[in-house]
Design a protein around this nucleic acid. Structure first.
Length: 588
DNA sequence: GTGAAGGGCCAC
DNA sequence: AAACGTGGCCCTTCAC
């Protein structure tokens, strides 16, 4: 593919280029950088294309890009939402532009996100620019220059041509992608996703403050506990091994399922098929060694997953953790997070209290109260379920009172617990045997309790059945925003049909929750503009903002308002409840 | 050595 | 009869 492009190497050329580009509604946009991490490398090239002519701006030709007034026309173009910047994985470009030019890219069309929405959860589809271009336009893209040396003083012709071509392809690519977004009725969810890029880019740039000293203190305690548990477990396990008496203790690898299982069998422990905690738990009382194994597992997990390794992610320039969030991390639309995963920090206060606000700052922490159950109440239109929320009382207690037909004040803790587990379980399509397993009820008792539950909530029951039927008939499920998930199953295989049904029934609930959170992030981003407030973490139904201590109360009001407004867009039949508080640490 | 798969477990 | 959804990380094991 031949690409016509011009290099932009001085202020005058930049002014002319920007004047020309300002006539365009859609601009293909891309950047080339010397590193992947915006805190490490250099933003080298910015490429714009209207589909006919392409301009490659070499930032190295401009001194001090962040403050250089010659770059003003470029900043205007980037931050003007009436010029749609079409980019592939725009979060990447947005972070670099934010960090190195000090502006936010407004008006984003992201072909990476659009491609993910269109593929509707198909895990086999790839979403690199080369894959997406091939799929939608049939164009072969040579990406061999992608990892070339962008820090060289003189860039080669093939490097610059590669850079130009990636921007040039975006305009025709968007036309194809947008047609498909339209025909798949994904316009609303696409808008919601594109609007979410900036808040996310900003959050990753900001990072989350981890108190290294506190983390190390905590670590030392766990290390001691781990060593003690390991030693004791080693002793107990080797008691049944013959060599123990001859050669001292027979060392076994405590992290090896195989070796531990063998050792347990030697000691006469009836090891179940799996050695997962919930299978072993019932044996712990009779066999102390099993209890010790569970104790060891707990501390070992803490030490390996939440140990020193996380400290290596602290960015020296900021002293903070800048994790990677995948905006469409799951087919349901939820985020995923890695390097490190800030969405799986143990709830235990010893861990969370290590995430702090720096001196003079505060954390504002807000989460939706039972948002998935409220979505379910709204979708199912079940009068009793809705009533339980509208009453504003303890939800699980109220449902227990309804299910067991007893006044709320007479509800036993056990009844409340059954109701709570069922309330959460129905969202996932729980079955009687699983319910029996987790409550200790017999199969019959579990079935009876579930019958009572669905007898009380007939509207919920029929919604879930109808939703399951529809999923199987249509082979797809959708959230309130129109986000789609296709389901693949062999209809002659009962297990596959059952799994697809549970999956498809759950997706609109979990996915609408994700829709709501993403809408909230955009509203929040706008209301925090010009304040000290910065988004620092999100965990599915929770948003954490860091701000100046003096603005904490005002920020809390803004955060709660954004979350409530977002929730109310899709949840109308029951109140949307947001719990918010200010703290110096990430704790309740 | 490296990478995939599977078990296990953390979050919501 | 019906076996609870979505992720990521760490470890061992096993194949290359």
């Amino acid at each position: 593919m031949e690409v016509y492009f011009q290099m932009v190497l001085d202020a005058e050329a930049l002014r002319k280029t920007c004047a020309e580009l300002e006539n365009e509604k859609f601009l293909g946009f891309d950047t080339e950088t010397t590193e992947l991490d915006p805190y490490k490398g250099e933003l080298r090239l910015l490429q714009f294309s209207n589909g006919r002519s392409t301009h490659v701006i070499d930032l190295r030709a401009f001194n001090d890009p962040k403050n250089n007034p010659d770059l003003a026309p470029l900043r205007v173009l980037l931050s003007d939402p009436s010029h749609i910047k079409i980019a592939h994985n725009s979060k990447f470009d947005a972070k670099w532009v934010r960090n190195h030019l000090g502006v936010e890219i407004e008006g984003i069309y992201d072909t990476f996100l659009a491609s993910q929405l269109i593929s509707a959860g198909d895990q086999d589809r790839r979403h690199s620019l080369a894959d997406v271009a091939q799929f939608f336009t049939g164009t072969e893209l040579d990406k061999s220059q992608q990892v070339s040396d962008w820090s060289a003083n003189e860039l080669s012709h093939s490097q610059v041509e590669y850079a130009a071509r990636d921007a040039a392809i975006m305009v025709p690519l968007r036309e194809q992608v947008a047609d498909r977004v339209q025909s798949d009725q994904l316009n609303d969810v696409a808008e919601l996703e594109f609007n979410c890029v900036l808040p996310l880019a900003e959050m990753e740039i900001t990072g989350f403050n981890l108190d290294e000293g506190r983390w190390r203190e905590q670590l030392e305690k766990v290390k001691i506990a781990q060593a003690k548990a390991a030693d004791e477990l080693q002793d107990m396990l080797s008691a049944g091994v013959a060599q123990a008496s001859l050669f001292g203790r027979a060392e076994i690898n405590l992290d090896s399922q195989q070796q531990v299982t063998d050792a347990l069998l030697n000691l006469g422990v009836p090891v179940p098929n799996t050695t997962r905690a919930w299978e072993l738990q019932p044996l712990a009382e009779k066999y102390p060694v099993v209890g010790k194994l569970l104790e060891y597992r707990g501390v070992a997990k803490s030490l390996s997953s939440f140990g020193e390794n996380i400290l290596e992610y602290i960015e020296p320039k900021t002293g903070r953790i800048h994790a990677d969030f995948r905006q469409i991390g799951a087919p349901t639309g939820r985020f995923s997070c890695s390097n490190p995963n800030l969405q799986q920090i143990p709830h235990d206060e010893q861990y969370r209290r290590c995430f702090t606000s720096p001196p003079g700052r505060k954390l504002v922490i807000a989460d939706y109260s039972q948002i998935e159950l409220r979505i379910l109440a709204d979708f199912s239109d079940d009068a009793n379920f809705i009533k339980a929320f509208v009453s504003g009382e303890d939800f699980h207690k109220t449902t227990a009172s309804q299910v067991f037909n007893t006044p709320p004040e007479n509800v036993t803790p056990e009844q409340r617990s059954f109701a709570k587990r069922l309330n959460f379980g129905v969202v996932y399509g729980i079955g009687a045997s699983r319910f029996a397993m987790m409550t200790g009820l017999s199969q019959t008792e579990a079935e009876n309790t579930m019958r009572r539950y669905f007898g009380t909530y007939r509207g919920l029951d029929s919604y879930l059945r109808e939703s399951g039927r529809k999923v199987i008939a249509e082979r797809q499920a959708r959230t309130a925003s129109g986000r789609m998930m296709r389901l693949r199953f062999d209809e002659s295989d009962r297990q596959q049909v059952g799994a697809a049904k549970r999956n498809g029934v759950n997706m609109p609930i979990q996915g609408t929750s994700a829709d709501i959170l993403k809408i909230a992030l955009r509203l929040l981003h706008e209301s925090l503009r010009g304040t000290s407030g910065k988004l620092v973490n999100i965990v599915h139904d929770e948003i954490i903002v860091e701000c100046d201590a003096s603005e904490a109360e005002a920020t809390a009001v803004k955060l709660e308002a954004a979350m409530r407004r977002a929730g109310e867009r899709y949840v109308k039949k029951v109140p949307v409840s947001v719990d918010v508080h200010c703290a110096d640490e990430w704790t309740k």
